[in-house]
């Protein structure tokens, strides 16, 4: 079993129900988030568009947080979830530095690292993660990536625009996005600055602009 998440970005309307349900389910302190929805505005008036992107732990197969944790407080569960052992964490914050997705925080109450666990405690008793249940448009799709009949596997097979965040880092995330765009996942990529790169000179023509 390899549990994964998929977000159909065309369905997400930025209502934040997932973020609120996550905080309620997991007692996430006020200043921290396990799941949040980012807004990205694209274009110039009147031709504009807003993207909503839910962000949570990617439960990478090659997780940098698991690798850097000096005491194995971050560890893999047999179902692929990257879990946190709060009693073992020494609070060095290395995992926060290693995670390229900004998905880990230090809980001010327990002083231990914490993050989205795909609601491992709910999964254990056969329930869906809280954010999946709360989503009014079923934008969050959760299931077993190894089961070809699961909804998430079918979604991955049927869509050709499957994306992950920062694929170049080779973290192998198990959190996918479909029907999105590059700027939604990486807003900085919308602007390639002028200047010299290793092999080319990037220069934009005036009538095209810098984006």
């Amino acid at each position: 079993m390899r549990l994964g998440f998929l977000v159909d970005l065309s369905r997400c309307m930025g209502c934040m129900a997932c973020a609120v349900s996550c905080k309620a389910e997991n007692n996430v302190p006020l200043e921290s988030w396990r799941l949040r929805v980012k807004y990205i505005d694209q274009g110039e008036f009147p031709e504009t568009k807003r993207h909503y992107v839910p962000l949570r732990c990617n439960h990478c197969e090659n997780a940098p947080c698991e690798r850097i944790c000096p005491v194995s407080a971050l560890h893999y569960l047999p179902n692929g979830i990257v879990n946190v052992d709060h009693t073992r964490c020494i609070g060095c914050a290395s995992c926060m530095m290693a995670c390229p997705y900004n998905a880990i925080y230090i809980d001010p109450l327990t002083n231990s690292a914490d993050k989205c666990t795909y609601c491992a405690h709910r999964i254990e008793v056969g329930l869906m993660p809280a954010c999946v249940v709360a989503c009014p448009t079923h934008a969050n799709i959760f299931g077993d990536l190894d089961d070809p009949e699961s909804e998430i596997s079918k979604y991955l097979q049927e869509h050709r625009d499957v994306m992950v965040r920062k694929p170049e880092l080779n973290t192998k995330p198990k959190h996918f996005y479909v029907r999105g765009s590059t700027v939604a996942l990486d807003p900085l990529a919308s602007e390639r600055p002028e200047g010299f790169t290793l092999f080319t000179e990037v220069k934009f023509l005036e009538h095209i602009g810098g984006h």
């Binding site: 980012k38 110039e44 900004n102 807003p187």
Partner: peptide, 11 residues
Amino acid sequence: MLGAEVTFDVA
């Protein structure tokens, strides 16, 4: 459509 920027985030 040109450019994109983050308008809301609670990093």
